[in-house]
Design a protein around this nucleic acid. Structure first.
Length: 567
RNA sequence: UGACCCAUGGUGUAAUGGUAGCACUUCUGAUUUUGGUUCAGCCAGUUAAGGUUCGAAUCCUUAUGGGUCAACCA
């Protein structure tokens, strides 16, 4: 596992899971051993909610000198695929974690689980049921009404064993028979009403091929898998709370050791302005409302990676949101804060003009080009500086000029002065407009004595604002993709209407006429930079040298946008 | 009209019977050749009612509110 940055040093206060573990260690439970696991089902892509779980499980192992396994919970061949296995391993590693030993699969334990099932049949705590799923459901009762026993509940062990073996041998079709645990049809906990242990699925499994046509259910698999791997603390989300009695019941039936894994539940992550369920994310992909699982608007790990999020930022986020049992909705602004905090220190600055308007410096010699020096990162002197061409014709951001500016507008107006970052102070003199009245050129004069860093008195002059620019003849055209929140409702999944009704129609904005300084050509795919005064961006996967494409990871905080919005 | 879980500023999370703290957000100000960063500060909280206790966010009771559970999914 990689080192924690200073930011990720744990505080002294413990979350409730850490408190449990600390107590267990003090009591020498399991010889003081700590082993956790991250157990995804390989049926989709990992999202920021999984990232919370990954950081939690691997983080607990780090903190308590334990181990953390990676285990694929692959008990349902109908839903699972190797494609997902590979992407999940990639995502876990990208987040900065390495699992202990080999990757594990629940399917590694199919033989042992089968043997345990036979053991339960022999001792009379499991039976084969011939009924349809509808019949079984109708006997299940309701949370307020006890269930009724299956007519097959009292088959002899011998008969059950024979039938179960024939199930395994492929003598029955899907759904014809199942194996159930004999627990308590009157339990107030629905999961204890003779839960299904094995079902018949004639489907090739991504790892075991056609060896099996019966597959164990989650409940009959998870606790035993934990046990077999020596997991001490089996951390899962709250909806498995009602499964815990069954988790423990199966272990009680099957094992006799003092060692016993303990299931602990925590509240899953919810993020404002997005959805987190695999089903809903899949729907967005299938309906082409996003461009695949790694669309930078998706809360998937691969989507966030493509957008330019760093693993450090995601880990810092996971750390700050904490772990507890109450339902929560984390404000997406915390995530944005974490990525800005990280990128502010790491990302070199670059000048790009997203919505260019031409600026002509009338008293600057035509044809002259001089080089000005700019520091790469004011937060990190070791990043050095670079040269950038300056000349008579430049492009500046259209929004940095206003004809009828309110008093709080600090940028360029006719008769007003601003500094061109790293270069000279200019004063706007007159405008050139087209037939529609749109400004096509801003003509200005410059103060030749004011060059940045020249040390002259004029260079020390204070002006209200400093704006970014690019020299016209050296400008590099780029495409920039701006992303906004995917939904315009804080909790799109929690409304009465379909969550897709709350999709933000402006979540993706593709800008094609953007211009960048020449240094932009040095960047490689996925490199992250700050576009001066605008935000953090990264080179998109689709970018090519002849067609450079950037994704906006997150904007800078923007005081003027706030003031402007209030008008 | 069951069982189980949960309840601290707008959001999230601490305080483990003894001064309700931290972070994000909002807002104010200082610094700034990024309206960024940094720094300083303001506003703002224990769901309610009883009880135990010298003392309760914390323990107990009840109420209220929220969540989970009736897949041959995980």
């Amino acid at each position: 596992m990689d080192d924690l940055t200073p930011n990720e040093e744990k505080t002294t206060s413990l979350n409730f899971i850490e408190s449990i573990i600390e107590k267990d260690i003090q009591n020498h439970k399991n010889e003081g051993r700590v082993q956790t696991r991250f157990p995804p089902e390989p049926n989709g892509y990992l999202h920021i909610g999984h990232a919370k779980s990954i950081c939690l499980n691997f983080g607990l192992a780090q903190r308590f000198n334990g181990k953390c396994n990676l285990r694929f919970d692959d008990t349902n061949p109908v839903k699972e695929d190797v494609e997902y296995v590979d992407s999940m391993m990639e995502d876990v590693r990208w987040l900065g974690f390495e699992w202990y030993g080999d990757v594990h699969y629940a399917s590694d334990y199919f033989d042992q689980l089968y043997a345990w099932a036979e053991k339960m049949i022999i001792k009379g705590s499991a039976y084969v049921d011939d009924q349809t799923s509808e019949q079984i459901a109708s006997q299940k009762g309701t949370p307020t009404l006890a269930g009724q026993a299956s007519p097959y509940r009292n088959r002899t062990s011998a008969e059950n064993l024979d039938l179960f073996r024939r199930m395994k041998n492929g003598e029955f079709k899907d759904g014809e028979k199942i194996l159930r645990a004999k627990v308590d049809m009157a339990s107030p906990n629905m999961h204890m009403r003779d839960p299904i242990m094995y079902r018949i699925i004639h489907k090739e499994h991504h790892r075991t091929g056609n060896k099996w046509c019966i597959y164990p259910m989650y409940d009959f698999t998870h606790g035993q898998s934990d046990y077999l791997e020596g997991i001490t603390h089996s951390v899962c989300t709250l909806e498995f709370e009602v499964h815990r009695p069954l988790y423990n019941w199966y272990l009680d039936q099957l094992i006799d050791t003092e060692y016993r894994p303990q299931q602990i539940e925590f509240a899953r992550l919810n993020l404002s302005y997005t959805v987190m369920s695999k089903r809903k994310l899949l729907e967005l992909v299938q309906n082409k409302q996003v461009n695949g699982w790694d669309d930078p608007r998706m809360p998937t790990v691969c989507g966030m990676r493509r957008r330019g999020y760093t693993a450090e930022a995601i880990r810092a986020f996971a750390d700050r949101i904490g772990v507890a049992k109450r339902d929560n909705v984390i404000d997406v602004s915390l995530l944005e804060f974490c990525v800005r905090e990280d990128l502010n220190k790491k990302a070199d600055r670059l000048m790009t003009v997203l919505d260019p308007v031409k600026l002509v410096i009338e008293n600057y010699p035509a044809g002259k080009i001089e080089q000005v020096s700019l520091e790469n990162n004011p937060e990190d002197e070791s990043r050095g500086s670079r040269e950038m061409p300056f000349g008579r014709e430049l492009f500046i951001e259209r929004s940095d000029f206003m004809e009828d500016a309110p008093k709080k507008f600090f940028r360029l107006t006719v008769g007003g002065e601003v500094r061109l970052k790293g270069a000279y102070i200019i004063k706007a003199e007159k405008l050139v407009k087209d037939a529609n009245g749109t400004i096509t050129e801003i003509h200005c004069s410059y103060d030749a004595e004011s060059r940045s860093g020249s040390g002259t008195e004029a260079s020390q002059r204070k002006v209200k604002a400093t704006i970014h620019w690019v020299e016209a003849s050296h400008a590099v055209p780029i495409e920039v993709r701006l992303y906004d929140r995917l939904f315009n409702n804080e909790d799109p999944g929690g409304q009465n209407e379909d969550f897709k009704n709350y999709l933000n129609p402006d979540s993706l904005q593709v800008l094609n006429g953007c211009l960048a300084e020449p240094a932009i050509r040095d960047l490689k795919t996925q490199d992250r930079v700050q576009f001066q005064r605008q935000g953090y961006f990264c080179v998109d996967l689709d970018s090519k040298p002849e067609h450079i494409i950037f994704n906006r990871t997150v904007t800078l905080k923007d005081e003027w946008a706030k003031i402007n919005a209030k008008e």
